[in-house]
Amino acid sequence: MTATLLKGTAYITGGASGIGRATAFGLARHGIKRLALTDISQENLLATSEALKSQYADVEIESLQLDVRDVKAVDYSITQAVKRFGRIDVAVNVAGISGAGKATDATDESDWTSVLDVNLNGVWRSQRAQVRAMMKQENLGIRKGRGSIINVASMYGLIASPVDIPATPYTSSKHGVIGLTRSDAITYAPHGIRINAICPGYVRTPLLQLATERGSMDPEIAKTPMGRLAEVEEISDAIVFMASPMASFMAGSALLVDGGYSAN
């Protein structure tokens, strides 16, 4: 791949840590020169922005603190990104939480609603604002269109979470993200907006790394044919592909990147 695989402006929610941070670096590495980086943590935003600028000095960064539960803040962040950069070519919705990890009978309604409000409603709020902005943009042809949106779901959006890992709110929210992705994909594909989802398996985030060191992830890693966790860069590479003209005929897809877990 060359640094010209991507061009234009990208916008990322949850872009200052984990998969979001890796995606910011991946997009910059492959040609994005204008980046609207949003995250709930101002501290992480500052650190990620500084790290990006040190490695990619020619990338312009708009850092915006954002809680995707706040519809006004979501709309404002898109407005600011367009105001500064003119358009949004790629939008990646990463922001999400894992939740309490309890079985349904032990889950409070507040636990349920908090996960759904971030993981599903937050993606909907973000995608709505992104679509509204993209619909006003010039269509750059069949390979680029008006823009590309990638929603980060999970393999749990296509399969159930294991019995020993109760995650019904999280799993339900990720199934919802895939439904949202597919429904909006067929609505907006005729307008030159591609909407797809990516479904990672177990990824080496700080939380899972700690669980791995304690051995509590061993049974799940054993179920993964590749026998390991994914690195965040492996997920961001797949996102770069989906954002690029190489995926120009993809719409409504739920791309599994799970080391073969769901094929068992």
Results as ranks from 00 to 15, higher is better:
T4A: 14
L5W: 11
L5H: 05
G8A: 08
T9L: 01
A10Q: 14
A10V: 07
Y11I: 07
Y11P: 10
G14A: 08
G15N: 14
A16V: 06
S17K: 13
I19D: 00
I19K: 00
T23R: 01
F25V: 08
R29C: 01
R29H: 01
G31F: 05
I32G: 02
I32P: 00
Q42K: 12
N44D: 14
T48I: 10
S49R: 15
A51I: 04
Q55S: 13
Y56L: 04
V59W: 11
V59Y: 07
E60G: 04
I61T: 06
E62L: 11
S63M: 07
L66S: 00
L66K: 04
L66T: 02
D67A: 02
D67V: 00
D70H: 13
D70W: 04
V71Q: 15
V71F: 06
A73D: 10
Y76E: 11
Y76R: 15
S77I: 05
S77V: 03
I78V: 15
I78Y: 12
A81T: 15
K83G: 09
F85E: 10
I88A: 00
V94P: 03
G96Y: 07
G99V: 11
G99C: 13
K102S: 04
A103R: 15
T104I: 13
T104G: 07
A106F: 10
T107L: 15
W112D: 06
T113I: 01
T113Q: 02
S114R: 06
L116W: 07
N119T: 09
N121F: 06
R125L: 05
Q127F: 00
A129C: 07
Q130M: 11
Q130S: 12
N139K: 12
G141K: 06
I142V: 11
K144S: 11
G145A: 11
G147W: 01
S148H: 13
A153D: 04
S154Q: 08
S154P: 06
I159W: 07
I159D: 09
A160L: 05
V163C: 08
D164S: 14
T168M: 12
H175P: 10
G179S: 12
R182Q: 15
R182M: 05
S183A: 15
S183I: 01
S183Y: 10
Y188E: 13
P190I: 05
P190G: 11
G192Y: 02
I193V: 08
N196I: 02
I198Q: 04
I198H: 15
C199M: 06
G201N: 01
G201C: 03
Y202S: 13
V203F: 11
P206A: 06
P206D: 08
L207D: 14
L208N: 15
L210H: 13
A211G: 09
G215W: 02
G215Y: 01
D218Y: 04
P219H: 12
P219G: 14
E220K: 14
E220F: 12
I221K: 15
A222W: 07
T224V: 09
D237V: 00
M242C: 05
M242F: 00
A243M: 03
P245Y: 12
M250T: 12
M250D: 09
A251C: 10
G252M: 01
G252K: 02
S253N: 11
S253V: 06
L255H: 14
V257I: 13
V257R: 09
G260S: 12
Y261I: 05
S262N: 07
S262K: 02
N264A: 12
